[in-house]
């Protein structure tokens, strides 16, 4: 195994090392080639757009300039960011409160909370689309930010609660006891001692929840009808070419690349945390 103390590499070890190296490379290529393809597509000019080349022959920003000229895309981008940020904030705040209680406090109804969140984690969103569509039209929430924020935060709450309660169980709780000995109430202990310690876990959960909200498509196309709340994934599906003879391929590719940027940034900066967060809830949970 890799942890073997001997430093001298036998031929067999060297060969196995090469084997694993090739496997690593294969994994990286597997993960990135569809991403590269859409990037390449977004930089092609209309003449070479359909040449099928894996690398653009000529590079152009035209597709990007094109989508940023229309409010169809910029408005959707603002919607996407606003809706995802608000939904994430609310879900993480509510999730933090509930997860603290789950990880820390004894109270009746804990099983109910866990049962309900488990149910919702498994809930098929399409089952909610028809009733929500009807309810939101009556309440005037259809085609508004709130109309999307509400289902997003609901569906991300189970994720938030699981991940956070897994993180919270790793916190040195003796500090809380010490605070209580010093006369702090449970609420003060939560706010002044535990919350700062829990911040990294909360942050990680925020990223996971944001990715979840950012990704949604079904609610976004079902609960909106105009650009006033349509998010980018939904807007892309409604893109039309600048003329009826032109396919919107370039615009779609460019918009797709734009909304992939935040994901790539998160992954590059917080790879460790995301992995820890994803696995914490499922395995230790």
């Amino acid at each position: 195994m890799s942890a073997r103390p001997s430093t001298r590499l036998s031929t067999r070890q060297a060969r196995s090392l090469t084997g694993w190296g090739i496997a690593n490379l294969a994994v990286v290529l597997y993960a990135l080639f569809p991403v590269w393809w859409i990037v390449a597509l977004s930089f092609k000019d209309p003449a070479t757009l359909s040449d099928g080349d894996f690398v653009p022959r000529t590079w152009t920003w035209a597709n990007y300039r094109g989508i940023f000229r229309t409010s169809e895309f910029t408005r959707a981008l603002v919607n996407s960011i606003g809706i995802a940020v608000i939904a994430t904030t609310v879900a993480v705040v509510l999730g933090t409160m509930a997860a603290y209680a789950v990880a820390r406090l004894r109270f009746p109804g804990k099983r109910l909370l866990i049962g309900v969140s488990l149910l919702i984690a498994m809930f098929p969103p399409i089952s909610l689309v028809s009733p929500l569509f009807d309810i939101e039209r009556v309440l005037g929430l259809f085609d508004t930010w709130a109309g999307l924020i509400i289902p997003y935060m609901t569906f991300s709450l189970p994720l938030a609660i699981y991940t956070l309660s897994a993180f919270f169980r790793e916190i040195p709780w003796d500090l809380e006891k010490a605070a209580k000995v010093d006369g702090a109430t449970p609420w003060q202990a939560f706010r002044l001692v535990i919350a700062p310690l829990a911040a990294p876990g909360v942050f990680t959960t925020g990223i996971l929840v944001f990715i979840f909200c950012w990704n949604d498509f079904l609610f976004a196309i079902s609960l909106t009808s105009t650009t006033s709340a349509r998010t980018v994934p939904a807007a892309i599906a409604f893109f039309t070419g600048s003329s009826q003879f032109e396919q919107p391929t370039g615009s779609i590719a460019a918009a797709a690349v734009i909304i992939t940027i935040p994901i790539v940034v998160f992954v590059l900066l917080f790879q460790r945390r995301i992995v820890a967060g994803l696995t914490a809830g499922a395995v230790k949970g």
Binding site: G21, N24, W37, I236, A253, V267
Partner: peptide, 29 residues
């Protein structure tokens, strides 16, 4: 992973994080 453990994990997180619709368009084209 003997080397590039971080690289592999980072790369692998891209499909997980990417918007499904984006990936679907990439495949479609």
């Amino acid at each position: 992973a003997v080397f590039g453990r971080g690289t592999v994990r980072t790369a692998v997180l891209v499909p997980y994080g990417i918007v499904t619709v984006v990936a679907a368009y990439s495949w479609q084209y």
